[in-house]
């Protein structure tokens, strides 16, 4: 993994389109953040707090792991 590359990826864009092509602004309003923050999260430029991550998952009615994926190496549970 290159330095600066995001460890947390997400499927927000896909989930938005599955939910009646929800816009970033609509998602931002429901989560309580700005549209620019949704854009930064979607582009893997900003990792949200746990609370915002849960709120995003709740908007799409899916578990957190379905929205966010952690790509860090070394799984201690394996």
């Amino acid at each position: 993994m290159r330095k600066g590359e995001a460890l947390i990826s997400n499927k927000i864009r896909a989930l938005r389109f599955q939910h009646d092509e929800m816009t970033q602004q609509m998602l931002a309003d429901r989560v309580g953040v700005t549209r620019q923050t949704v854009n930064a999260i979607e582009g893997n430029k900003y990792s949200p707090s746990l609370e915002v991550a849960f709120r995003i998952a709740r908007v799409f009615c899916v578990p957190l792991e379905q929205v966010f994926q952690y790509a860090g190496s070394g799984d201690p549970c394996a």
Binding site: G32, V33, T34, R35, Q36, T37, A40, Y46, S49
Partner: peptide
């Protein structure tokens, strides 16, 4: 004017 969020 939007409220400041956690990223701001």
């Amino acid at each position: 004017r939007s409220e400041m969020d956690e990223r701001d």
